[in-house]
Each structure stands twice: as structure tokens, then as C-alpha cells.
Design a protein around this nucleic acid. Structure first.
Lengths: 322, 322
DNA sequence: TTGTACGCGTTATCAA
DNA sequence: TTGATAACGCGTACAA
């Protein structure tokens, strides 16, 4: 393996001069620079990044921690990788499944200097556990949270959900069935608030229709249709926690011969790739921009510069299910 | 940052003994081992992995190269990460978009010892260019190819496509429209062969219905339905290159008031997450197992051991579109 | 503008 | 079974 010493020898300079010529940092005369570059070319030189990392204390690598990498995490992943690579960084994956101890492994990777920073998509560990590790490098969360040391690039789903509710109202739906996700999450709390405020604004009975929690798969959506049929059609619209639930509702409704939006309307959330295949009305949010923000926060901490982050905005995507 | 020297000093041993005690390699008396471990605990010691990598010449990190990380690559990614993590490896992402020069960057990362090995999902570079880099570490391809130095974990789509065709035949369809993907790929060639053999077997006219190439998005699928309507309904079944095309066909057919499978049947390929939402008959193949195989090949090369790989098999998933 | 000398933190070799 | 010593390959004070 040809190293920088050999290049230096071949170019007739010292290793430090070769280092400066190759990295572009420090003063080197044009003359010697040319010699070094020629030698590097000749010997097909490639720097050993492990040595660089050891010396500089920086890997230019950030870790992404998620239970798995399906949609919409895959979108976030792509966005993060794009932002990272554009700035000479690289992304390393840590998959936790639902195993809380795997989150610790990712944190340990940070401590062991395998990565310079960490992005958590979601996590189940205590916030305080995670916060202990910020001394080893920046940690950013996609999941919504409030903590001094751990910035989050979340979007306040109050706004997005309000968008969905207002749309359903404008379309004439009054008996809206709220299908919420994980009841522990702040996002769910925000959506519940949004619905309360919405009811107040239009003087609607918030209990006109039952609501559901911890309902987030397409299978859950299919069950909802059967529930609806067996309970006297108690709703004229479903506001769903995500597109999976909405898709399940649409699919099962079609199987049952129901017509959408005549029998009931369905509004999803996330605007996943397949949503337009089902003509699903849904709420879009720019995952890409959130990933960009996550990276910007990390980079500004690592490189100690001031980088702007743009607040991403929700957008209603009107299709045929409302 | 507390390093191994301090641990050694605290434990009253030499750094090399501390190293042996911590890594578990080499002889250390129980006595000293206990002392070292206690000191490590006390000082909250974590080894610097960059130093380890520099010294040992191995990063236990493998690179995954793909244009983007949407389905089905996200499945492969998850599978690869799972296999890797189970063996103390980690996965780093390289996203190429459609930029061929980014493939070179991934190859350079291998040369610069940022990763020990590389897995290409697809690539556009010359095979010979890639082959030049195998001297820096194992390279495996998911994309089908034939090359001495670059093993591939591809599945022969001849078998999968035959499964689809036989199913359509059994269901009574005789005018099958073949919708192929990238005409350059070996997979497409295999499917064309499969269809030729299929026609021969059942004495069908291979030109009873036109076929399409380079057709692989849901938008393309939607266009196909319009083509079908405008050209005298020339097919009674579509055998599609992937689920995206099939989904586009199903979606557009529904919008046009057509009935599936009465007006025509649709068979997809890949069995993506959303396929069951559209009740799409499709061909499933175990992406997970392919990822496992990719990792097994890499590990057997790196660690110079013999690891088995299992040939994955296709499976027909019968739903309501055929 | 260049070169010397050292250190980053670890593991491997080898002699004791 | 242990410890001294020498790398791994690079960047960078500091002196020249």
C-alpha cells in the first residue's frame, strides 16, 4: 500500500510538504505541488481515511438511527444522504428494530468515534439517556421532542391536521372520525388539540363520532371499514394518522362495494409514493427539507458555523377520496 | 478523552496487557483482566475505533451503493443492515442518483479504506472499471451480471416470469401483453426468453399482442390503459415488469370504469408493500435472502471462511387482478 | 516556503 | 503471562 511517505520520497520533498500539497492546506510552491501531484498520480496514491480520522478526530460520517428503512424513513434517508454527500459527509445506518438496546449501540458508535453525529428517526430510550451522549457529538431527532440539548426537526402536526380538517369541513363533512397513531407521541396530542379547536371554531360536537388511537397500519384501516359497517355507518369521513391506514380503508371499502367519497371520505397523511395510485387525498410534508434541516443543524455544530434552516410547510394534496 | 494508556496506568499494567484484556485476544490472567475491566468501568472508557481501524486495517464497515433508497432497495437495505449488524458490521450508504461519477466516489471510498467492501444495487459504470477495484476489497452486485471477480446475488427472472405466464395461462388468458423494463438488462432478456419458451410450449403466437420495453413507472402503466382503449382492446392480460407499472394500470383502469380482471388481467412483479392494497397478483421474491447472501459472500471473503448461500426462490402471490 | 519531529490511540511482535 | 517497542498513515507545531 503506497502511502504519503513514498509519494514524498518520489517527489523529492518531505512528507509534510506532500501532505500540504495533497490536502491543499498550508503553503506549498507551485513547483513542488506539481511534483507531488505527479508522484501521487504515478503511484496511484489514495489517502487512508482511517489515519486521517484518527489524526483529525473527525470522520465526516453521521449515523442514522431508525427501526427500519421503509417509507417514509427511506425518503428521509435519501434526503439526508444527499445533503451529506453534497458536503463531503457520508451516512452510516443503525437499525434498531424495536430493540431498545440497539439504540444504545448507536450511541456507543458515536462515543467510539465511528460517527461524528447521530440522527434519530424515533427512539424509545429515555431522553436523559440520549442526552448524556451529546458530549460526544451532536444528536438530532426527527421525532418531535422538547429538549435543550437535542434539537428536533419535527413539524407541528397541529397545522397539517388542521389543513385536513378544514378541507373535510369545506367539502361538507361533519361527522369526522379521527384515527390517531401512537397515543404517547406529541404529534398525537397536537392532532387532538387541532380537532378540539376545530370543533370549537365551527361549533361541532367533538363526540359526534368516536375516535381511535394506536391505529397505524393498513390492516387497522381495513378493520375500520368493518367497524363502520357493523355500527350503523357512524361517520361520513375518516381523518387518518397516515396513508397506510387510509389505504387500508380505501382498499377494504372497494372490496365491500362501498363508494368513496359518496359513502364516506378518506384523508390520509404523509403523501407516500403509492397515495396517488389510490387517488388518495392526503397531507404532504417535505421530508427532504426536514432531512436538509437535520444535516444543517449537525453541520453548523460540527463546523461551528451559522447555517440557516427553513421551516417546512404542510400542503394539502386533493385527490378523489374527499 | 480517556484512552487505553490511562486505563493501563490505573490498573497498574502495561497498555498491551490492557489491550488484550479489553479485546479478549491473547493471554491475560484473570487477576489483571479484572483490574483492567474495573479501571475501564471507572473511567468510562470507550475505544477509538479509528485507531483500531488504522492499526488492524479493517473497518468492519461495508458500503451500499444505489441510485436512491426507495422500494425495493429499502428492503434490501434493511436486510443488509440486519445481516451486517448481527455480525458486528455496519453499513454506509452511497447514493448515486443517475450520476455515474458518484459510482466512482463509492469505489474510491473502498480504496481509501473507508469501507471494507461494497455492494452495488445497480450500476452504469463499465464492469471493467469496477473490477479494477476488487483488489481493494470484495465487491458484490445485486444487479445481474456475469463476471469472474464480481459475484452477483441476482435471481434468474426467467423462473419468476414463467411463474406469472403459467398462472395467466391457467386462468385462461391467451393474449398476453408483455411489459418489459430496461432493454439492456439481462433480466429483460431472460423474460423475453421465458415468453418465447412459454409460447412454444403451448403453441401460442408470440406476436398475438405487441410488447413494450423500457416501461417501468406507474405513469407508464397509466398510459398503457389508454393505449389499450384506443387500439381495439388488443390484450386480455398484462404481465408487468414491476408492481409500479401494474399499479398504474390498475389505477387508470379503475378511473376509466374498466373492470379487472374481467376486461383484462394484471400481474405485477416484486410484491411491494402496497401491492396487497390494490389486490394485485404479483411475483414475490425474497429480497431479504438476497441481502443475506450478499453479506455472506462478503464476509466469507473478508474473514476467509466458508459461508453457505441459499438460492432464493420466486413465489406467485395470487390476488384479485387475475 | 520547507523539513523535522511528534502524536493521534491502538494492536502486534518479540523478548523476557 | 507480561511489558517494551514499534508500527499503522497521517497532519501539524515549530523551527529553520
Amino acid at each position: 500500500m503506497t502511502n504519503i511517505k513514498e509519494i514524498a520520497k518520489r517527489a523529492g520533498v518531505s512528507p509534510s510538504t506532500a501532505s500540504r500539497a495533497l490536502s491543499g492546506r498550508g503553503y506549498v510552491s507551485e513547483e513542488k505541488k506539481r511534483l507531488v501531484l505527479a508522484a501521487a498520480e504515478e503511484f496511484d496514491y489514495a489517502p487512508n481515511l482511517n489515519a486521517v480520522s484518527l489524526k483529525t478526530g473527525s470522520t465526516r460520517r453521521i449515523g442514522l438511527v431508525a427501526p427500519r428503512f421503509a417509507e417514509p424513513v427511506s425518503l428521509f434517508t435519501s434526503g439526508l444522504v444527499r445533503a451529506a454527500e453534497a458536503n463531503g459527509y457520508t451516512v452510516t445506518l443503525f437499525m434498531t428494530g424495536s430493540d431498545i438496546s440497539k439504540e444504545t449501540e448507536a450511541l456507543e458508535a458515536l462515543r467510539r468515534k465511528q460517527v461524528d453525529a447521530l440522527v434519530f428517526v424515533v427512539f424509545w430510550s429515555d431522553l436523559s439517556t440520549i442526552a448524556e451522549y451529546v458530549k460526544y457529538g451532536p444528536i438530532v431527532s426527527w421525532q418531535r421532542l422538547v429538549h435543550e440539548a437535542i434539537p428536533s426537526v419535527f413539524m407541528n402536526q397541529y397545522d397539517g391536521y388542521t389543513l385536513a380538517l378544514e378541507h373535510l369541513y369545506a367539502r361538507g363533512y361533519r361527522r369526522i372520525c379521527n384515527v390517531y397513531g401512537d397515543s404517547q407521541r406529541l404529534n398525537t396530542q397536537s392532532r387532538i388539540e387541532a380537532f378540539a379547536d376545530f370543533c370549537r371554531k365551527y361549533d361541532l360536537d367533538p363526540h359526534a363520532c368516536p375516535s381511535f388511537q394506536n391505529t397505524d397500519t393498513s390492516g387497522d384501516g381495513e378493520k375500520l371499514v368493518r367497524w363502520w359497517l357493523e355500527n350503523g355507518r357512524p361517520a361520513d369521513a375518516f381523518a387518518c394518522t397516515n396513508d397506510w391506514v387510509a389505504s387500508g380503508i380505501v382498499a377494504e371499502a372497494r372490496r365491500s362495494g362501498l363508494r368513496i367519497p359518496e359513502d364516506f371520505a378518506v384523508c390520509g397523511f404523509d403523501n407516500l409514493d403509492f397515495a396517488h395510485l389510490l387517488d388518495l387525498t392526503t397531507i404532504h410534508y417535505p421530508v427532504d427539507e426536514q432531512a436538509n434541516n437535520a444535516f444543517a443543524i449537525i453541520r453548523s455544530r460540527i463546523e461551528e458555523i451559522e447555517l440557516p434552516t427553513r421551516p417546512p410547510v404542510f400542503r394539502l394534496v386533493e385527490r378523489l377520496t374527499t
